[in-house]
Design a protein around this nucleic acid. Structure first.
Length: 276
DNA sequence: CACCAGGCTGTCT
DNA sequence: AGACAGCATGGT
């Protein structure tokens, strides 16, 4: 088994934090599935073990070269609460394939994490390549252009999102994706908003997880509640208000802060159901 | 049974 | 510009 020495990284929090949904527990670690690869990772203290892929891929995918010290310094001084920092310490923004983030977050709207996972598994079983790994059977994430059977999509339990999946699959091209990757944050977001089924929240997720625009700040119900709880005395705010607040308060790398807030709010004891 | 989930679209003010 | 129902499905 190969291994990388690192610090200030938490594999479990990074994988389980709602950025990707295609991983399975395996042997005290995880089997991670993408469009082109399936690999194993586990962590013990400051060692990251991996198998089935190159070291360069692991470093890239888990964003291990991200300037984390600089980020820690910044959040010391920008009014991010101590317990949020401690709860989410070690999280990184994954560097995922753009198409995979488009597919993933089209399937994420008005669903919970378990449902999103189910949606992706279901589509992968129908359209993804079957692979065998460590004695088990898996299906890679369906690539762009492979989701051509509208009836099969409708019958895959993704609900009303099926129409968006079918449409985006033949609307987008490799060239379009390539241009998206060289666009600025504002350009990229606007182009994504032209796609049916992609609104502000999903566009922000794609910009952050698929294009590494750290100034994007996706606001879902959890992040919204986190900001309202911590900075507005629990009083409800509109999403544009929170967007402006985040820009002013959290700076250029507010995408990371967003990930911290999501992690913190989702695990806040006894506050994750009724009565906020 | 009702309500919610990493929301978006169309419609009506 | 803002409010708001409707949307498919699965979980609680």
């Amino acid at each position: 088994m190969n291994n990388i020495q690192l610090k200030d990284f938490d594999l479990a929090k990074t994988l389980q934090g709602g950025q990707t949904f295609r991983f399975h527990n395996h042997d005290k670690g995880f089997i991670v599935i993408t469009q082109k690869k399936i690999f194993f990772v586990s962590q013990e203290n400051n060692s990251l073990f991996y198998d089935g892929c190159e070291e360069s891929f692991v470093k890239h995918y888990f964003n291990l070269d991200y300037p984390i010290d600089e980020f820690y310094k910044q959040i010391q001084t920008n009014a991010l609460f101590e317990d949020v920092r401690e709860r989410a310490r070690g999280i990184r923004i994954l560097r995922q394939d753009v198409w995979e983030t488009i597919l993933t977050f089209l399937l994420s709207q008005n669903a919970n994490m378990k449902k999103i996972r189910h949606n992706l598994e279901s589509l992968s079983k129908k359209f993804g390549t079957k692979v065998h790994y460590k004695g088990e059977e898996f299906f890679l994430t369906p690539p762009l252009g492979s989701l051509n059977d509208q009836h099969a999509i409708i019958n895959s339990s993704v609900g009303y999102r099926s129409q968006y999946i079918y449409a985006v699959n033949h609307l987008l091209t490799p060239l379009w994706l390539q241009r998206l990757q060289t666009a600025t944050y504002d350009e990229a977001k606007n182009r994504l908003l032209d796609i049916p089924g992609i609104g502000p929240k999903v566009a922000e997720c794609i910009c952050l997880y698929g294009l590494q625009h750290y100034e994007s700040f996706p606001i879902d119900v959890w992040v919204k509640r986190a900001v309202e709880d911590l900075y507005f005395k629990g009083k409800e705010q509109t999403i544009p208000t929170i967007q402006v607040f985040a820009q002013k308060t959290f700076g250029k790398h507010r995408g990371m802060v967003q990930q911290y807030l999501f992690e913190w709010r989702r695990h806040k004891p006894h506050m994750n159901k009724k009565n906020r």
